[in-house]
């Protein structure tokens, strides 16, 4: 019993020391003009073929996310290729086996017998969106909080839907739009709105998290911004990011399955 009480006392003392230090440090720092930093920042500007092109923080975080994904893929691929049948897989390989199995089950549950054709693409998009969304935990500006990135993902889904629809249904893919002739404008608008709503959903969710964290870091006094935002990061980055990556993949699968039939 005494040992437990001692431990609690020690933890409390450490927390008190950290709090006192935070207050002292915040007193030492002069009052600077605080600013909420959630906008895309311009890093470099150059001219190419008569057009001004901008390199922004989005490009930097996109590059970092892509490099991390590629490095992980190469490492896991080498480890899996070298493995014997009797060898027990390590932590990393285990995690990725779990992830691949979960993605396989998810795609098979929604797409049925077409799962084999789409699981690679869906798993890729899932990993990319997930790593982009949670990259703000490491202090990057999430690339999916830039409409250019999410619109590209939405357009890929749009073309996937219609190419697969034409493959599966032929000419009736287009004629079914005009089936009740009175409803044809609504049908056509509905088809155009699909990539827009998909991309705006991902963009808006991630951007709202970024704006909230930017407001908290930029406008709240320094002692409160040490430690406490961790809880908010769990909600705005981890929870929201995972849910949105899942939803994006799920909706992509639902729309494609709607066109090619189960």
């Amino acid at each position: 019993m005494e040992k437990k009480a001692n431990k609690k006392l020690k933890v409390l003392a450490i927390i008190a020391i950290i709090a006192v230090l935070a207050v002292l440090i915040s007193k030492l720092v002069p009052d600077i003009d605080r600013e909420a930093g959630f906008a895309i920042s311009l890093l470099y500007e150059f001219e190419l073929f008569g057009q001004t092109l901008h390199l922004t923080s989005t490009h930097v975080s996109l590059t970092i996310v892509t490099v991390v994904l590629i490095v992980l893929a190469v490492i896991v691929n080498k480890k899996v290729m070298r493995m014997d049948d009797e060898e027990t897989p390590g932590t990393l390989v285990n995690i990725f086996e779990l992830a691949v199995e979960a993605a396989d089950n998810m795609v098979r549950g929604t797409m049925g017998r077409h799962a084999v054709r789409f699981r690679n693409y869906i798993a890729t998009v899932m990993l990319f969106a997930l790593f982009c969304n949670i990259s703000s935990i490491w202090g990057l500006r999430p690339p999916t909080a830039d409409y250019g990135v999410t619109l590209a993902m939405g357009l890929i889904t749009f073309f996937l839907i219609h190419i697969n629809g034409i493959k599966a249904q032929g000419a009736s893919h287009f004629t079914s739009l005009f089936k009740p002739i009175l409803l044809s404008p609504i049908n056509i608008i509905g088809e155009v709105a699909t990539p827009l709503s998909l991309s705006l959903r991902l963009f808006g969710n991630v951007l709202s998290g970024t704006v909230m964290m930017g407001l908290i870091y930029g406008l709240v006094a320094p002692p409160i911004t040490t430690g406490i935002p961790a809880i908010l990061h769990v909600y705005f980055d981890l929870f929201s990011g995972c849910i949105q990556a899942y939803v994006f993949c799920m909706l992509t699968m639902v729309y494609i399955t709607d066109k090619i039939g189960d």
């Binding site: 959903r201 949105q244 939803v247 909706l251």
Partner: peptide, 8 residues
């Protein structure tokens, strides 16, 4: 997530 779209 779909219901959230209008708010977004």
């Amino acid at each position: 997530a779909v219901a959230e779209t209008t708010g977004l």
